[in-house]
Design a protein around this nucleic acid. Structure first.
Lengths: 212, 212
DNA sequence: TGTATATCTGAACATCAGGTCACTGTCAAG
DNA sequence: CTTGACAGTGACCTGATGTTCAGATATACA
């Protein structure tokens, strides 16, 4: 992935910041105004360049529809700039999505080192889930563990939090070529497979924390 | 805040899900299509209702610009004074105690929330160990996991970092009445038992962190 | 000197997308 | 029976937005 010029970096940073702060992406004209450009094309050009360099994805013709491409993973455990985030911890999420669950439902707050938790600067919302059950025992995730979830699209092999029968459970997301994707438990005693609809997956598990 | 009807709940859930999955909000027409409505006004009406009930914020005239309103916080679960500690991470500790090991031997630094890691303010030295091997696989501790160790005396059943053959390994510490204490691996394939001398135990594992 | 890249201006243009008005129908509460 | 909230259809308007064409500088490079 080619590196960005400082100006392009600024633009991307603005997108990211606006997204984080307001919850939605800025329009081209928002961006234009923020930088004081007198033409929308100034922004358009930069976006084109940033996209071409592979740092950004856009949906052509769609308003405020971006996706920031994650940087390749750095080497863990050697970065001194520790980035800490507060994350709400949920028990079981009976139905719906965590950010909509009354915050009373959060059973705690967890402070995670972003680097350690394997999180990236994608800006995706993060929450934590207390695992109930042993469906992922073979993946080393046990009852009572806290799993840190990043709300993003799942890829083949990811462990995901998925809404099944109105309950959030952890499953392995499998997507093989030529087949519809499915979810799989990892417990020899209770193997299970579920077909997936696109919107069932709530997020991807990035790390596990367990108190002994 | 008034509660939503089930249909409104569905709509809101779709917004949230689309946002989570794709990284940007759906347009009214996206939503219309998803539910198979034949009029955009079906969506518009719902959004108006959801907004009126205070579950959603919108920026009038702006495309794909929402903000889901979180429920008012009930009672903060814990005080905000989260106690964070920097902990050195070691690979394998060849011999001796980590605090005697030159700091260069640390392969990283980990920041842990004391509360989360189940640590007490006992003042006991803390360090972290990157697990090498699968000796504790049955305890859900896998190769590559980082274990946070508190240097204190072990009790029966604790998982401990122990110095065996000049290498630090994780074992279960067993101390039954009328018997000398011993260490036990938890891996059906390679069970092992070691007698213990008092000075072998370097500390007690308090929590496990794993990046997926 | 010529070419490429980066940064921006300015002015359209097409369409994406939100907003609104007029109606239809259902259902529970008063 | 009437009223009001809920759920939708259909048509239409207009502003919001992404896109593109045609330059203008400035810098680096070969």
């Amino acid at each position: 992935m080619k590196s960005l010029t400082s100006r392009q970096e600024e633009i991307l940073q603005y997108l990211q910041t606006h997204f984080t702060q307001k919850g939605y992406w800025p329009s081209i004209r928002d961006t234009q105004q923020h930088f004081g450009f007198k033409s929308t094309n100034a922004v358009a050009g930069h976006l084109r360049a940033i996209e071409k360099k592979g740092h950004l994805e856009r949906i052509p013709g769609h308003a405020r529809a971006y996706r920031i491409v994650e940087m390749p993973t750095a080497v863990p455990f050697n970065d001194n700039t520790i980035d800490v985030t507060d994350v709400p911890v949920y028990g079981s999420i009976a139905a719906g999505y965590p950010d909509r669950v009354e915050s009373g439902a959060a059973i705690g707050q967890l402070q995670v080192d972003v680097e350690t938790a394997g999180l990236k600067r994608s800006g995706a919302p993060i929450f934590a889930l207390k695992v109930d059950g042993e469906s992922m025992i073979e993946a080393g995730i046990m009852d009572g563990d806290v799993v840190i979830i990043e709300q993003k699209e799942a890829r083949n092999g990811d462990i995901v939090a998925a809404l099944i029968d109105n309950e959030t459970t952890l499953k392995r997301f499998i997507q093989e070529p030529g087949r519809p994707p499915y979810l799989k438990s990892e417990n020899v005693n209770y193997p299970s497979f579920h077909p997936v609809t696109e919107l069932m997956v709530q997020g991807v598990a990035k790390s596990v924390v367990r108190s002994l």
